[in-house]
Design a protein around this nucleic acid. Sequence first.
DNA 1: TTGCACTACTGCGCATAAGACAGTACTGTT
DNA 2: AACAGTACTGTCTTATGCGCAGTAGTGCAA
Lengths: 107, 107
Amino acid sequence: MDTTQLLKGVLDLAVLAVLREDDAYGYDILRRLRTAGLSEIGDASVYGTLRRLFAAGYLNTYVVPSEEGPHRKYYALNPAGRSQLKQGGEVWREFASTMESLLREPA
Amino acid sequence: MDTTQLLKGVLDLAVLAVLREDDAYGYDILRRLRTAGLSEIGDASVYGTLRRLFAAGYLNTYVVPSEEGPHRKYYALNPAGRSQLKQGGEVWREFASTMESLLREPA
DNA sequence: TTGCACTACTGCGCATAAGACAGTACTGTT
DNA sequence: AACAGTACTGTCTTATGCGCAGTAGTGCAA
């Protein structure tokens, strides 16, 4: 079974969650997600998700030059993003609980 | 947030789970899933998934005529399907646990 | 007897989103 | 000079859930 399809719709949420505490740039978000357990996630998936979330109005962004390499494009949760994180988390939990009950041995 | 994307890759698992106890035909599987909590699932999604699982070799099938309407195409889990259900369930649980830890308030 | 609702399934085509891949660009090391 | 690591963009492919139309059977109501 491929984890690729499981990610659909959830990567948005994972990225928002990673940004909850502090701003981060794409490459760092990628590393955080891989460390957190989504080890096989592709870089293009994360960059694409960030663009999508930005376009949807959930993120603010600003560029910071780096002395150790290329510039970094930081993303930050805005109020809409925080609201989306909260709501998305609820939807996810409800969905996960439905799946769990389906998978459990029936009475 | 749309539940559509959350279903990706998981509908397979949900259908296999519903078939664990006894055989069922498409329309009934659809009803069972909707009752179980996946209330917004589309009929074409279920029929498509059944065809896909059958083509992948996880299901056996047979047609039963009905006196209360059109014929019914029953599906049954075969050994490969049971194995897939077991393995898919494990992958799902691990994935869900990763997501849960990402969503939880950080230490 | 015509029409509608419900059951049951097939097939077409679309939209979404993850990912592979190539390319650009900068820094530091060998 | 070559290469690895960092950091990002753009293009194309693929998987899959779903809308919609169509087919077909039963039974009920106007």
